[in-house]
Amino acid sequence: MESYKFICIECPIGCNLTVEKNGEELTVLGNTCKRGEMYAKLEVISPKRVITTIMRTEDGKIIAVKTDKPVSKTKMFEYVEQIKSKRVKSGAKIGDVLIENIEEGANVIATSNPY
């Protein structure tokens, strides 16, 4: 049996999570909620993070963005490069999808209006 330890990043509590791996079976200890359990399991299988950064619009303004779902942690830098290489249409506004499917099921969306 293997065991892993994590700090949960799902909410400000920051539970100390332990995942016990018995073959394919994962058991999570130390979580206070369902999200913590999910997070811990994913950390073992394929860790994911939400990326937040800024992009530039065609007219030189800045717009804050995020991935609307967590994406592979190991590909974070690659995705940041990809996000940054694109220019956003000047009419974009908060909530707009700016890049579709940067990773399966995850889009890059605007989290602010351009400034």
Binding site: C11, T52, T53, I54, A64, K66, I94, T111, S112
Partner: peptide, 22 residues
């Protein structure tokens, strides 16, 4: 909040993880 573009805001109030500007 405008410069806090990271997520993690609003979990208590909106039950979702928002960025500062959101």
């Amino acid at each position: 909040l405008n410069q806090c573009i990271h997520n993690g805001f609003g979990l208590t109030r909106f039950k979702e993880s928002l960025t500062g500007p959101e």
